[in-house]
Amino acid sequence: MTELALFDLDHTLIPFDSSQEWGRYMMQQDMAPEGFAARLDQFQEDYVAGTLDMDAYLRYFAAPLANYSRTELDQWHERFMDAVVRPQITAEARQLVQQHLDAGHLCGIVTATIDFVTRPIAREFGVKHLLAITLETANGQEDGAYTGGWVGIPTFREGKVTRSEMWLQDMGLNWDSFAAIHFYSDSMNDLPLLRHASHPVATNPDARLKVLAEQEGWPIIQLF
């Protein structure tokens, strides 16, 4: 039996919220309406407080992407990776992921950020399995233009557990298929999936998760 290693992304493997940073980048490129980044900051505050309206957040975040072709968006995102993401990935974060990959563990990133923003970041870590919020495309084509909507179950709170189970089932696996299940997260929003892990790790934890981890005796690590 192999082991399963799951990672949250924002503030866990990277020291920032990728949707917020992408929003600021869109503002810099005149791709989004005035005040877009500030509104994303408010959504982030709601997320930390556990009061995020995911439906409202997704509608707001996805809308500007429908104004551009996938080719344009991919070109902008590659520049975003060079300017914002790659310089901030720490050696410690890369080493953490790599040690699980080298051990032959099944690795996945499970994030409540959209797939367009996070898929290139997952590739940067060498992780081919990404569970993220899936944006809707025209006619359901994988490379089609974005419509401003999304599909499926958002990978948020209990949705991270559900989507992980669906992903494993697609491979003919379940939680019992693994000798150990690791999950790294910074947020109390991820408590449902942390409870499913045999080895939960509070990673750069927020204040509430740090208190819980100390009570539960979970490891606490800092990657940045």
Rank of each mutant, 00 (worst) to 15 (best):
H11P: 05
T12Y: 03
L13E: 00
I14H: 13
I14Q: 12
F16N: 04
S19E: 04
Q20E: 13
R24G: 15
M26R: 03
M26Y: 03
M27N: 11
A32V: 04
E34W: 07
A38C: 05
R39T: 06
L40C: 12
D41A: 01
Q42H: 11
F43A: 08
Q44C: 14
D46K: 10
Y47K: 14
V48I: 15
L52E: 11
M54T: 14
D55E: 14
Y57I: 04
Y60A: 15
N67S: 04
S69V: 04
S69W: 07
R70W: 12
T71N: 09
T71E: 15
T71V: 12
E72T: 11
E78G: 05
R79A: 08
F80C: 00
E92D: 12
R94C: 03
H100M: 06
D102W: 04
A103V: 07
A103Q: 13
G104P: 12
G104W: 03
C107K: 06
I109H: 04
V110D: 00
T113V: 03
D115Y: 05
D115F: 02
T118V: 15
P120D: 00
A122N: 03
F125K: 00
F125H: 01
G126H: 07
L130V: 05
L131W: 01
I133Q: 02
T134Q: 14
T134M: 08
L135W: 08
E136W: 07
E136G: 13
Q141Y: 13
E142N: 09
E142Y: 15
D143P: 07
D143K: 12
G144I: 09
A145Y: 09
Y146F: 15
Y146N: 12
Y146W: 14
Y146R: 14
T147W: 08
T147K: 08
G148R: 11
G149M: 09
V151Q: 03
G152I: 13
G152D: 13
